[in-house]
């Protein structure tokens, strides 16, 4: 009996994912060497994950990391053409995994490392020149929306994970686990548009909320409403505009939206 192509592929894949050995019955040669494929699969996944998550690796040790990667990739086999996306769901998986969910420093490290990885090689976009803001008509400001650079990430941290991560990535054994931050909050991770080096900084609470609102399509008036919870009414516009200027200067904004045709500069 010969199996058809689709059946053979299902059986072979099943075997490599640790399932049934049915494929062995359809091989002419090399049954013992099926392990080459199986070993290669596990080794490849581990290598990619270790490359992206050296901080998590250093935190939970070789055995813990090997177990986490194996369990994670069983739950989330790659559905990506590029293997660099393999770790996409790792932070969320860790946050939910019985073995790790009680250790926020581990899940924070994973989220931070994934943000670094995305910021490093996300697609390029030209940052918005600051002059573009100056040319927006006053009546267009309240409804103004903003496109964010694909490299810009936001991560909530309660531990100072960055120095530990830097040491782990450089193969120096970090000495102590990351200490708690004095002020937990959201950190921005992004790529400098000139040097292309990945940078990070903590955000004020209202700045973080504003950025999240903008990411969700919120306009300038939404940004002002958020600022109004932090500063007195007379300072609201300046605070919101200050955020915006910082974001444009850092290259986080790549485009403007929500401008009615009638007030586009070219129409005036």
């Amino acid at each position: 009996m010969t199996a058809e192509l689709a059946d053979l592929q299902s059986m072979m894949q099943d075997r490599l994912l640790g399932g049934s050995d049915a494929i062995a019955g359809h091989l002419a040669q090399g049954g013992p060497f099926l392990k080459v494929y199986g070993n290669g699969y596990g080794a490849r996944l581990h290598e990619v994950m270790a490359d992206v998550f050296p901080g998590v690796h250093a935190l939970i040790g070789d055995d813990g990391f090997a177990r986490a990667v194996q369990d994670y990739t069983e739950a989330h086999p790659s559905r990506f053409r590029s293997i660099r996306w393999l770790g996409r769901d790792f932070p969320a998986w860790l946050a939910d995994a019985p073995a790790w969910r009680g250790q926020p420093v581990v899940t924070e490290m994973a989220a931070y490392e994934w943000a670094l990885s995305l910021a490093f090689d996300a697609p390029d976009r030209d940052p918005l020149p600051i002059e573009a803001l100056a040319s927006v008509a006053p009546e267009a400001w309240p409804g103004l929306t903003f496109d964010l650079h694909p490299a810009l990430q936001a991560v909530r941290l309660s531990h100072d994970v960055a120095p530990f991560r830097r040491a782990a990535a450089e193969d120096q054994d970090p000495e102590a686990a990351p200490p708690k931050l004095e002020v937990p909050g959201v950190w921005a991770v992004w790529r400098d548009s000139e040097t292309l080096i990945v940078r990070y900084r903590p955000l004020a609470d209202d700045e973080a909320q504003g950025l999240e609102a903008v990411r969700g399509g919120g306009d300038f008036s939404a940004l002002c409403e958020i600022a109004a919870e932090t500063v007195p009414p007379e300072e609201v516009a300046a605070r919101a505009a200050g955020f915006l200027k910082d974001w444009v200067d850092a290259g986080w904004i790549t485009g403007l939206g929500g401008i009615p045709e009638a007030v586009l500069p070219s129409d005036r």
């Binding site: 192509l5 592929q9 894949q13 994912l17 290669g40 293997i83």
Partner: peptide
């Protein structure tokens, strides 16, 4: 790979 999964290996065809 098959069924939407990528095994990231060059698997032999019959």
């Amino acid at each position: 790979g098959a069924h939407g999964i990528n095994l990231h290996d060059l698997l032999p065809l019959p």
